[in-house]
């Protein structure tokens, strides 16, 4: 009996979570005229692909998507390389200044991001990177959280394995590349997903930096479309649906690693 109540509560909340998403999917296939007629779901025979067609033929949606992929891809790869290599050094070597480096990084993690907006804008302005994708990618290279994530995870790689690699003829970088990174595959997966979601959904910084519409990423572009193509709700929902898809796909590929990575950070505080 009590179990039934529990299930009902769980199902109720599951519905609350899913209904807006279902509505998004339905709306993406809804003709604009039908929004007022069928607020929930129109009959199946009234569903249309017109929204998607207009996204790609009349609006620069494809360009936004390509821009987003480029910026997110480049940022994730750079972050991955810098953070994992730095995390490896901090996890597996003793060297002078190590404590200082970690202390400074931890301290800066406490500072909320918006503090950096003004000086960062100034810096990017002087580097001549306003209204460019580099202006998004370059400041995004540094991911202190990611570096600590890698350090935490690489601490558990046994020293003997690194020594074996040394004996087997690896130089120090080859140890990282051939042994430590492959062994850290789960955390690499989790990191890639977290970093990708962060960049893919980034709004404020691109909103500040980007000016030309042909450089817009998806969040900026879709937001702008609302102003330009007013009342084209169907296209907007279709665009939102397509914009979310890459994250969902990546999540399904990496979900096991992702949950583990998320909660690993939590337990360590």
């Amino acid at each position: 009996m009590r179990r039934l109540v529990v299930y009902m509560l769980l199902v109720l909340f599951a519905l609350l979570c899913l209904v807006p998403i279902a509505w998004l999917v339905a709306s993406a296939f809804k003709a604009n005229a039908d929004f007022h007629v069928y607020p929930v779901v129109p009959p199946v025979d009234r569903l249309t692909l017109a929204n998607f067609t207009s996204l790609f033929t009349q609006m620069p949606f494809l360009r936004f998507m390509m821009n987003s992929f480029f910026v997110a891809g480049a940022t994730v790869i750079l972050q991955l390389f810098f953070s994992s290599l730095g995390g490896f050094a901090l996890a597996k070597y003793d060297f002078a200044g190590k404590k200082a480096v970690m202390g400074v990084m931890l301290a800066t993690m406490m500072i909320p991001g918006p503090v950096l907006l003004a000086p960062m804008y100034e810096l990017i302005y002087h580097m001549g990177l306003i209204d460019s994708h580099l202006g998004l990618i370059v400041p995004g290279m540094v991911n202190v959280f990611g570096m600590f994530l890698f350090r935490q995870s690489m601490l558990s790689v046994p020293d003997e394995m690194l020594q074996a690699a040394r004996i087997d003829g690896c130089n120090e970088f080859q140890i990282f590349w051939h042994v430590v990174m492959p062994v850290s595959r789960p955390i690499v997966g989790a990191f890639c997903l977290i970093a990708f979601m962060g960049t893919w959904n980034s709004f404020l910084w691109p909103q500040i930096i980007l000016q030309s519409s042909d450089r817009f990423t998806l969040p900026i572009g879709l937001n702008q479309m609302i102003g330009v193509y007013e009342a084209d709700y169907g296209a907007m929902m279709a665009g939102t649906l397509l914009a979310v898809l890459p994250v969902v796909v990546l999540f399904f590929l990496l979900q096991k690693e992702f949950i583990a990575g998320l909660t690993k950070g939590a337990v360590k505080g």
Partner: peptide, 18 residues
């Protein structure tokens, strides 16, 4: 080695963080 490994991160951190 550790200094070399940390260099890219620390360098970009100094410019875009510190």
């Amino acid at each position: 080695a550790p200094y070399l490994f940390l260099a890219p991160f620390v360098l970009s951190f100094l410019i875009f963080g510190a």
